[in-house]
Nucleic acid binder design. Structure first.
Lengths: 184, 184
DNA sequence: ATCAGGTTGCGACAATATGCCGCAGGCTGC
DNA sequence: GCAGCCTGCGGCATATTGTCGCAACCTGAT
């Protein structure tokens, strides 16, 4: 199932969250390394060959999305779980396409995260999300968020360009992006 | 780039939406087949070997997610785009994992859908910023309007119910409906 | 090295829009 | 008639935009 040592690499520039997460994982017996930037992440990934990677998407302005491919290259067999407070369908789709194994939104329970980190790479037998279709339609706020995120991705995370494309004011877009998406 | 005939298969149990979508695609020169159930979908997929597939997730109670794998099996080279009015990150992640090429939330502009249907198979390395399609994405206002109208229709034009479904205040919905949609 | 032109983050403030009350009236089925 | 739902609208405190402006970066060209 996994190697003798299941090394975990936590990549999150939020110092507090990073520390809390690392401690929680350690308490459960996993060797953990926490880093705060993409550079550190790649260096450690190459060096320690972690089997599990937790990746935040907002790394000091830069998108953690860009790290998925190189991480996957360095650790072909690791489980990569993207964990972000600014979750959106667009980035989720992108992350999975790039090779991530799971995509979760903060806040998340440690058990959910662990499950995502350790579940078998491909297990068609599990029908978890498959039978969860009839939920509520997206709220207008959520809708707006998803739309913005999609266009933002299309524009390579260029805020000004996105604002122009969306025909809205850059200042307003900034403010909207600063707020966390609301659930449902 | 693509075969001589780019056959499109539209799978959506919403008769109205299905018809509208099919017509829009036909008008753009694509041979289109519209079906309303999973069984029809699989039958037609096997028979016509479509190169593009649009799949709704709410197929009369059953989740279209369960169709992704068999469809992928029948048409290994087709572009499969999941299109749903009840989008969620969980189903998005699942759809991509199962082999879908894109996941979009209704409402969606026909151009966006076409772009998703025809764009090259996932190529993460490509910096596709340059070949941005000339079409402008909908403004957030327009997006909101389309979404509201869709949910309103789903609720038989019941303003109160729509407000609840959208998790917004009835008064605000009323005011929004009072204003006419702005173009672009 | 300097300069033009793009992007970004953010403060400030007036103009709007929203959330949230309440009320009156119109439907329905019992 | 009554209960329960829906609708349209007034009012007002609060929150969110639209708009400016500014300082700080980048990046490529001169």
């Amino acid at each position: 199932m996994s190697s003798i040592v299941d090394h975990v690499l936590v990549i999150d520039d939020d110092a507090v969250f990073n520390r809390v997460l690392c401690r929680a994982l350690k308490r459960r017996g996993y060797p953990v390394s926490g880093v705060h930037s993409g550079e550190e992440a790649l260096a450690l990934a190459a060096q320690e060959q972690p089997t599990m990677i937790v990746l935040d998407l907002n790394l000091a302005g830069k998108s953690g999305l860009a790290l998925v491919t190189p991480l996957r290259g360095l650790c072909p067999d690791a489980r990569i779980v993207v964990l972000t407070g600014y979750a959106s369908i667009a980035t989720a789709v992108e992350a999975i396409k790039l090779g991530a194994n799971q995509y979760l939104a903060k806040p998340v329970e440690i058990d959910t995260l662990l499950h995502a980190l350790s579940s078998a790479p491909v297990d068609p037998g599990a029908k978890t999300a498959i039978d969860t279709p009839p939920s509520m339609p997206l709220s207008v706020e959520r809708m707006e968020w998803e739309h913005i995120q999609r266009i933002l991705l299309e524009n390579n995370c260029n805020v000004s360009a996105t604002a122009r494309a969306l025909n809205m004011h850059r200042r307003t877009l900034q403010r909207k992006l600063g707020k966390r998406p609301k659930q449902l």
